[in-house]
Computed example of a mutant assay.
Amino acid sequence: MQTGDQILVKKINKSIVLQTIQSRSPISRAQISKDSGLNKATVSALVSELMEENFVQEIGTGLSSGGRKPVMLYFNKTAGYSIGIDLGVNYILAVLTDLQGNVVEQVEEKLEETSTAYVFPRLKKTVNALMEKGSASPYGIVGIGVGVPGITDKDGMILFAPNLNWERVDLKRYLEDEYNLPVVIENEAKAGAHGEKIYGAGKESSDLIYVSMGIGIGTGIIINDKLYKGASGISGEMGHFTIEANGKKCRCGNKGCWELYSSESALLEQARSLSSVKSKLLTLEGLIKEAEDGNTEVINLFNQIGEYAGIGLTNVINTFNPEQIIIGNRFSKLQKWLTNPIQHVLEQRLLPYYHDSLNISFSHFGIHSSALGSAAFSVEAFFSENKVTVS
């Protein structure tokens, strides 16, 4: 009869073997033993289990250093698939990924309104489209992750999403009842930070802030390689920093919030007063086209928005002293116009000591960070039975 300690040790060892194969495959049993410090018999037994579970495959022989050629092992990234969704204020972006975060399929849908009666059926439609693509695998769809533009608690309840006009919305229960799958609901900026840390621009940084700049502004905080959520899971609402003491009234109840001056909503609102684009249908993409065509009014507006972005980032940097700031979501499309005004403001307002260790970059994934991070949350939950985190 196994004791609890024996079971725990086996789970830890199995986790080490699986993680080694995931990160280093193709790799031999002997190399796993050498890298992990586990004896060859233990590695062989655990690899056999992982092969029976369809997580590991043999893919042929490698080069020999003398004696029999080693059989190489490979992580079976298509043993299952995850669905990751970025639920925006005016869009749904959903991706189907394999177990290593590679996008297999994606679906986008525009949203004309934000009521749950309107949004929920469209979420279901996007999930259904992706479910068909991922069903033909040993584990099928392993879970659904959703990044939402609002505050969520540790149980996945959407407490408050001001730009959606949602309060206490249980999207998690709706999706779990609909699909009988595990569902992870998280703030979209936290999901974006997670996606960039695992797969993207933040892989090499231990302390980073992901700034999601879209209709609103949210931030995801990585400290010592871990996503920081705060005491009750609602950290990162930096879009509601006050940057104008007697500024505009925000839906959150505050005045002068950062996102009222440097977000897609702020950009489109201010663009409506520009004489050169007044008669046109205003979209971010349309304004980018105007700037590319040399429209100086729009270029000046981008510069102004960039300066306000810099003011907010000054507060972020002074608070956290991160190694890296990654700007993502819709404003990643404005990198060409935002980089200089942001840098100019930071040079004016920050102590020079911050600049030496700070890297400001734009998302590797553009608008996809949150969807990828949400899918990764579901993959991690799926593997949790085989993995034990050892601190």
Rank of each mutant, 00 (worst) to 15 (best):
L73E: 10
I217F: 02
L301F: 05
N90E: 12
N163Y: 14
V119K: 06
L350P: 14
G150Q: 09
R122F: 14
G230T: 06
P322W: 07
G60R: 12
G140E: 14
K11W: 00
P121M: 02
E307L: 01
A309N: 14
P352H: 02
A376H: 09
S263P: 04
Y228Q: 04
S48W: 03
M238V: 05
Y118D: 04
F320Q: 09
E108C: 01
L281W: 00
I32E: 09
D177F: 03
D170T: 09
A291H: 14
I222V: 14
Y81A: 06
Y354V: 09
I311T: 11
T97N: 02
R29I: 12
A271S: 03
G156F: 02
G310F: 08
I12D: 04
K190I: 12
E380T: 10
D155Y: 13
I59T: 10
E269L: 05
L227E: 13
I185S: 06
K154S: 05
N300T: 13
D155G: 15
R24W: 02
K14D: 12
H355I: 08
G147Y: 08
E292D: 14
S357T: 15
R24K: 15
K255S: 05
V127Y: 05
N102L: 05
K226W: 05
A136L: 11
K387W: 03
I12V: 14
R251H: 01
T3D: 04
S369E: 11
W337T: 08
E264T: 14
Q270H: 13
R122C: 10
Q324V: 12
S232H: 04
I158G: 08
A129G: 05
V390D: 13
I299M: 06
S135L: 14
E176Y: 02
D86G: 09
T114W: 00
G233I: 03
R168D: 15
A371M: 04
G150K: 07
S384H: 12
L284Y: 03
G310N: 05
E112W: 01
V127F: 07
S384M: 03
L268E: 14
K336P: 12
C250A: 06
V17W: 04
G220M: 03
F55I: 09
V184I: 13
N359A: 11
K333E: 15
E259W: 13
V298Y: 00
S275V: 11
